[in-house]
Design a protein around this nucleic acid. Sequence first.
DNA 1: CTTGACCTTCCTGTTACTGGAAGGTTTATA
DNA 2: TATAAACCTTCCAGTAACAGGAAGGTCAAG
Lengths: 127, 127
Amino acid sequence: MNISTAAKLADLPVKTVRYYADIGLVVESGRSESGYRVYDDAALRKLAFIRKARAIGFSIDECRELIGLYQDSARSSADVKRIAGHRLEQIEAKQQELASLHHELSRLIASCRGDERADCPIIDFLG
Amino acid sequence: MNISTAAKLADLPVKTVRYYADIGLVVESGRSESGYRVYDDAALRKLAFIRKARAIGFSIDECRELIGLYQDSARSSADVKRIAGHRLEQIEAKQQELASLHHELSRLIASCRGDERADCPIIDFLG
DNA sequence: CTTGACCTTCCTGTTACTGGAAGGTTTATA
DNA sequence: TATAAACCTTCCAGTAACAGGAAGGTCAAG
């Protein structure tokens, strides 16, 4: 199938599929006579795999590792769990950071009258 | 004062101060004969203001607005509160997204034995 | 006078794409 | 059969907010 068909079936933009091919993440299975990219079912499955992994928040590099494991029948589930655990730690770190920001910012907003006067605790805090 | 002194006092990397000057966010107050950037106290205060605003998570464009309000004695606190409120909404949206990811990923991780066998619910989910 | 610590501009790389230009191919229709 | 629409290709630029580094000028100390 052509790239647009593969993209549609994998639920990815054509541009993204071409990008994944460029960086060697999911390469097309071949080329037509005229130079068009051709995708087979195996390549299609990889594209869909990547889309799901990206949706979970894995980086491209992590996806590269994951797809290696995906294709490696001799993989250990420990390897997969390690990568996923690392990603979970990143999520938790970001969550802590956001919670702290939310706390501080909502406190500032609550203390600001938000009227036409210049007096503003938010500016005071920053200045 | 020179850029390195200003950077130290504002607690910012020299590279960042130069970058802020390049994009017109905080321009140096002058140049020495030899072309060195010179910062006065007003510029220094702006740099420190920006550092704090960035730490709260405001984007450079939001910082541009905020520093405009910071210097505008006729500002209304409502304008500041609006920008801060917008940022708070972004934080909350990101928090929801992360909470959802955390939920899904921790569930997958918990169900994965993480041993030397290939069988892995994380891969199953992605594949 | 030379060494080292400054400073300058300019270029590249980062993440993961997206948009667009210029141009070739295929398919459907008039 | 001509042509227009809808594909496809490569390449370049831009996004956010810097960081690293090269090449080269400046300044203060010993």
